[in-house]
Deep mutational scan, measured.
Amino acid sequence: SPEVQIAILTEQINNLNEHLRVHKKDHHSRRGLLKMVGKRRRLLAYLRNKDVARYREIVEKLG
């Protein structure tokens, strides 16, 4: 489901952010981070168009 995919991506994004705080010059990982953020944004847009209630619920849960 989109909610699960968004939750997994959010966790991976948070982990990668911590990694990049330590390894500032790791541009390869930064590119992966940007791809993940874009994918999460697309999934959220899809969910917002399909079911606003589910969209609001996941945004509330994940912050």
Score class of each variant (00 low, 15 high):
1 S>C: 14
1 S>I: 08
1 S>T: 09
1 S>Y: 15
1 S>R: 07
1 S>E: 07
1 S>V: 06
2 P>T: 12
2 P>G: 03
2 P>F: 14
2 P>H: 08
3 E>H: 03
3 E>F: 04
3 E>M: 05
3 E>D: 05
3 E>K: 02
3 E>S: 04
3 E>P: 02
3 E>V: 07
4 V>G: 07
4 V>Q: 12
4 V>S: 10
4 V>E: 14
4 V>P: 03
4 V>D: 12
4 V>H: 14
4 V>W: 12
5 Q>P: 03
5 Q>G: 04
5 Q>A: 09
5 Q>S: 05
5 Q>T: 07
5 Q>H: 06
6 I>W: 03
6 I>Y: 02
6 I>S: 00
6 I>F: 02
6 I>C: 02
6 I>A: 01
6 I>M: 02
7 A>V: 10
7 A>F: 14
7 A>Q: 11
7 A>C: 15
8 I>E: 08
8 I>H: 10
8 I>G: 03
8 I>K: 11
8 I>N: 07
9 L>R: 01
9 L>Y: 02
9 L>V: 03
10 T>A: 03
10 T>G: 01
10 T>H: 02
10 T>M: 08
10 T>K: 01
10 T>L: 06
11 E>C: 13
11 E>F: 06
11 E>R: 08
11 E>N: 06
11 E>A: 08
11 E>D: 07
12 Q>A: 11
12 Q>E: 07
12 Q>T: 06
12 Q>D: 03
12 Q>R: 11
12 Q>I: 13
12 Q>N: 06
12 Q>V: 08
12 Q>M: 15
13 I>Q: 01
13 I>L: 02
13 I>A: 00
13 I>H: 00
13 I>T: 00
13 I>D: 01
14 N>M: 10
14 N>V: 06
14 N>Q: 09
14 N>H: 10
14 N>C: 10
14 N>A: 06
14 N>D: 06
15 N>Y: 12
15 N>L: 13
15 N>C: 14
15 N>P: 01
15 N>D: 09
15 N>H: 12
16 L>F: 07
16 L>G: 01
16 L>S: 01
16 L>T: 03
17 N>R: 15
17 N>K: 15
17 N>D: 05
17 N>T: 14
17 N>A: 14
18 E>M: 09
18 E>A: 11
18 E>I: 08
18 E>R: 10
18 E>N: 09
18 E>F: 08
18 E>V: 07
18 E>C: 13
18 E>T: 06
19 H>Q: 05
19 H>M: 05
19 H>P: 00
20 L>V: 04
20 L>K: 02
20 L>T: 03
20 L>M: 07
20 L>E: 01
20 L>G: 02
20 L>S: 02
20 L>R: 02
20 L>A: 02
20 L>W: 03
21 R>G: 04
21 R>M: 06
21 R>V: 05
21 R>S: 06
21 R>Q: 07
22 V>R: 10
22 V>L: 13
22 V>F: 09
22 V>Y: 10
22 V>G: 08
22 V>H: 12
22 V>N: 10
22 V>T: 13
23 H>V: 04
23 H>G: 03
23 H>N: 10
24 K>A: 09
24 K>F: 07
24 K>N: 12
24 K>G: 14
24 K>L: 08
24 K>T: 12
24 K>H: 11
24 K>W: 09
25 K>I: 07
25 K>E: 14
25 K>T: 12
25 K>V: 06
25 K>F: 09
26 D>H: 13
26 D>R: 04
26 D>N: 05
26 D>I: 03
27 H>V: 11
27 H>I: 12
27 H>S: 09
27 H>K: 11
27 H>R: 08
28 H>A: 14
28 H>M: 12
28 H>Q: 12
28 H>W: 06
28 H>L: 10
28 H>I: 11
28 H>G: 10
28 H>R: 12
29 S>T: 08
29 S>R: 07
29 S>A: 14
29 S>I: 14
29 S>D: 05
29 S>P: 03
30 R>P: 04
30 R>N: 07
30 R>W: 14
30 R>H: 13
30 R>G: 03
30 R>M: 12
30 R>I: 13
31 R>N: 08
31 R>F: 06
31 R>A: 11
31 R>G: 05
31 R>D: 08
31 R>K: 12
31 R>W: 05
31 R>E: 09
32 G>R: 15
32 G>M: 15
33 L>I: 06
33 L>F: 06
33 L>G: 01
33 L>Q: 02
33 L>R: 04
34 L>E: 12
34 L>Y: 09
34 L>D: 07
35 K>D: 13
35 K>E: 15
35 K>T: 08
35 K>N: 11
36 M>A: 11
36 M>K: 07
36 M>T: 03
36 M>L: 15
36 M>G: 01
36 M>N: 01
36 M>W: 03
36 M>D: 02
37 V>E: 08
37 V>T: 04
37 V>A: 05
37 V>R: 06
37 V>Q: 08
37 V>P: 00
37 V>C: 11
37 V>L: 13
37 V>N: 03
37 V>F: 08
37 V>G: 01
37 V>K: 09
37 V>W: 09
38 G>S: 12
38 G>Y: 13
38 G>N: 13
38 G>T: 12
38 G>I: 14
38 G>Q: 13
38 G>D: 13
38 G>K: 14
39 K>D: 10
39 K>I: 12
39 K>L: 13
39 K>S: 05
39 K>F: 06
39 K>C: 08
39 K>R: 09
39 K>W: 08
40 R>Y: 06
40 R>S: 02
40 R>E: 01
40 R>K: 03
40 R>P: 00
40 R>H: 03
40 R>L: 14
41 R>Q: 08
41 R>P: 00
41 R>N: 12
41 R>D: 10
41 R>G: 06
41 R>H: 11
42 R>Q: 10
42 R>A: 10
42 R>V: 09
42 R>M: 10
42 R>S: 06
42 R>L: 10
42 R>F: 07
43 L>C: 03
43 L>N: 00
43 L>W: 04
43 L>R: 00
43 L>T: 00
43 L>E: 01
44 L>K: 00
44 L>Q: 00
44 L>I: 03
44 L>D: 00
44 L>H: 00
44 L>V: 02
44 L>C: 09
44 L>F: 02
44 L>Y: 01
44 L>A: 01
45 A>H: 09
45 A>I: 10
45 A>T: 07
46 Y>E: 15
46 Y>M: 11
46 Y>C: 11
46 Y>W: 11
46 Y>H: 10
47 L>Y: 01
47 L>I: 07
47 L>A: 00
47 L>H: 00
47 L>N: 00
47 L>F: 02
47 L>D: 00
48 R>T: 00
48 R>E: 06
48 R>Q: 06
48 R>V: 03
48 R>M: 07
48 R>W: 09
49 N>G: 10
49 N>K: 15
49 N>F: 11
49 N>I: 14
49 N>A: 13
49 N>T: 12
49 N>P: 00
49 N>S: 12
49 N>L: 14
50 K>V: 15
50 K>Q: 14
50 K>E: 11
50 K>T: 15
50 K>P: 01
50 K>C: 13
51 D>L: 04
51 D>Q: 02
51 D>N: 08
51 D>R: 01
51 D>E: 03
51 D>P: 00
51 D>G: 02
52 V>Y: 15
52 V>A: 12
52 V>N: 11
52 V>F: 15
52 V>I: 13
52 V>W: 15
52 V>P: 15
53 A>Q: 12
53 A>K: 13
53 A>I: 11
53 A>H: 14
53 A>V: 13
53 A>Y: 06
53 A>C: 12
53 A>R: 10
54 R>F: 05
54 R>M: 08
54 R>Q: 05
54 R>C: 06
54 R>E: 03
54 R>V: 06
55 Y>L: 02
55 Y>G: 02
55 Y>K: 02
55 Y>E: 02
55 Y>W: 15
56 R>S: 06
56 R>G: 05
56 R>K: 11
56 R>H: 13
57 E>W: 05
57 E>D: 08
57 E>M: 06
57 E>H: 05
57 E>A: 12
57 E>Y: 04
57 E>G: 03
57 E>C: 07
58 I>M: 06
58 I>L: 10
58 I>D: 00
58 I>F: 04
58 I>E: 03
58 I>G: 00
59 V>W: 05
59 V>S: 02
59 V>N: 01
59 V>G: 01
59 V>D: 01
59 V>C: 14
59 V>H: 02
59 V>T: 05
60 E>Q: 12
60 E>H: 08
60 E>W: 04
61 K>E: 06
61 K>T: 09
61 K>G: 07
61 K>D: 04
61 K>S: 11
61 K>I: 09
61 K>C: 09
61 K>Y: 08
61 K>F: 08
61 K>N: 06
61 K>M: 13
61 K>R: 08
61 K>H: 10
62 L>Q: 02
62 L>F: 05
62 L>I: 12
63 G>D: 07
63 G>H: 15
63 G>F: 15
63 G>M: 15
63 G>K: 14
63 G>Y: 14
63 G>V: 15
